[in-house]
């Protein structure tokens, strides 16, 4: 029991919380960018533009079917080969954005496909252009429907940030490992603490998703 008290001394907690903050930071940045990108890519794929949509769809399917871990390695070791020096932070965010925007675009495409095609026809016959109809009529409706799926994808993203320990991003899990590798009696207290912290963010997000799903149903 005393190992718990010692493990949770302020220096250790402060060290962990810095990692927790980085986890949140990486998550927020990646969520924002991949949401925007996913929205664009999903709409593009849905629009069935000759060749563009097909090629885009294929690339998205490739990315969706690879382990995120592999994509993290590709950005970390691959980007520098094009002359881009990336930090673990940059590599982690770009890998998360590549992977998650592909996942989100699929949600968006599905959401758009679920809207009655009559809506589009109606908007067009009221004199709107395809773009106008998309932006003002179709996308807003689809978005409300896909909020629950989007939120649970964001939960996945938060959990997935833990994979970036592999490229030494000093986030929550990495810092826990640093602490218990310096004093191995802290192993259990550390895993307990980070489980609680991850759970706190993810549970809040998934409860939000559930509540929204119920309200929208």
């Amino acid at each position: 029991m005393s190992s718990f008290v010692q493990a949770y001394q302020w220096v250790n907690l402060r060290f962990l919380l810095q990692g927790f903050w980085l986890t949140i930071e990486v998550s927020l940045i990646s969520i924002t960018i991949s949401f925007i990108l996913g929205l664009i890519l999903g709409t593009l794929r849905f629009s069935r533009i000759r060749y563009v949509s097909a090629i885009e769809g294929f690339v998205i399917d490739l990315i969706r079917n690879l382990p995120l871990l592999l994509i993290i390695f590709f950005t970390y070791f691959g980007l520098p080969q094009f002359g881009i020096r990336v930090s673990p932070f940059g590599a982690a965010v770009s890998a998360l954005v590549i992977f998650e925007s592909a996942m989100i675009s699929e949600i968006v495409r599905g959401g758009l496909a679920a809207i009655d095609p009559g809506q589009m026809e109606g908007a067009r016959s009221n004199g709107m252009s395809y773009m106008q109809a998309m932006v003002h009529v179709i996308i807003p409706q689809a978005l409300t429907k896909m909020i629950p799926a989007l939120l649970s994808q964001f939960v996945s993203l938060v959990k997935d940030t833990s994979l970036a320990t592999i490229i030494l991003l000093p986030e929550l899990l990495y810092r826990a490992q640093i602490i218990y590798s310096q004093n191995s009696t802290y192993m259990i207290p550390m895993y307990l603490m980070i489980s609680i912290l991850y759970f706190a963010i993810c549970f809040t997000l998934s409860q939000l998703a559930k509540r929204l799903a119920r309200r929208l149903a």
Binding site: V155, K159, D160, S162, L163, T165, L173, M187, I188, Y191, I194, S195, Y198, F199, C202, F203, S206
Partner: peptide, 22 residues
């Protein structure tokens, strides 16, 4: 369900690998 849905897989796996054997 809530516990395993809201904790990263890597953390779950590490616990089984490191803590359970002890």
């Amino acid at each position: 369900i809530e516990i395993f849905r809201n904790i990263p897989l890597l953390v779950v796996t590490m616990v089984f690998y490191l803590v359970i054997p002890m």
